[in-house]
Design a protein around this nucleic acid. Sequence first.
DNA 1: ACGGATGCTTGAATTCGTCAAGTGTCGGAG
DNA 2: CTCCGACACTTGACGAATTCAAGCATCCGT
Lengths: 158, 158
Amino acid sequence: MAYPSGVAKTRPASKATLAADVWRAIFGFFWSTGARNSLMLVSQELGVTPGHIKALLELQPGQPRPMGALADALHCDASNATWLVDRLEERALVERGTVPTDRRVKTVVLTPLGAKTRAAVIERLNEPPEELLALDREDLEEMRAALAKLPQGPPPFA
Amino acid sequence: MAYPSGVAKTRPASKATLAADVWRAIFGFFWSTGARNSLMLVSQELGVTPGHIKALLELQPGQPRPMGALADALHCDASNATWLVDRLEERALVERGTVPTDRRVKTVVLTPLGAKTRAAVIERLNEPPEELLALDREDLEEMRAALAKLPQGPPPFA
DNA sequence: ACGGATGCTTGAATTCGTCAAGTGTCGGAG
DNA sequence: CTCCGACACTTGACGAATTCAAGCATCCGT
């Protein structure tokens, strides 16, 4: 109910309503087309599990990362990170290493195969769904311009 | 490489590129802010699991649905649907029923509690993330107008 | 009315996720 | 220098979610 005083009443749509509408458009689109399928589909196509994908995306090629940092990035338990890295190591996508300054920490780094797989995952994830390709060029341009304002967070992409 | 012949070369951005840019904007936003957290956060807040939520959203209040149709809607195995409905039934969110014309099929229908929970889930899922509320009103209006063209699929919302 | 197809359930196996202990290492207080 | 607590990771147990292979009851075309 109570909005900050002084907000124009002449404007029919409050900022919250606007944001809600935008969110519904994005979320509804994602829900119906992409969200549920993307990770699972890609993982099946590339022969890895969704968990592998999330982990791979958090690793920069050639840049070893401590297990703990990986767990933080994945918002998961340390033991879960251990399990995940075990699976990735079995498939030769990553290798474990140590840092000389602190023998407690173990690092994870992509193997060449891992880097290749990661690149394939990213490329595949970036492929737009058919529903977007079916839209008119004008509408797409309008969307691209408008969506440029969306925050992207710390992208594991690129 | 090869695009359909006759596409204007004067236009720097092909339609595929446009769609890819739009998709990246949406997907990147989702990845960094919403996708990984929304379902899990909501499920924790409401005391249900993500699986419960997906199933609840596919059920219209007062409208029994065969298990098979539910499994199709969830893009999952029939046995998985059985398992999910078991859990939902344990929590009195749904009830099983039969159809007189075919005694093989078992239907699932929301209980009053289930309908209430579903409504709460939908309302919570429709709350926009902070990142959207932080944007300018003009940008939001621009986005809303542009995104109106997005297909929504068969929405389990509303 | 028989045989194959259909709809759901059951059971084993895999992935993913959390929590509770266990092991080895670091670093500061005495 | 030596403990002792903190830290980094691993291990094990368990639950959630998912898939496959069998199984059971029912339906339907011949």
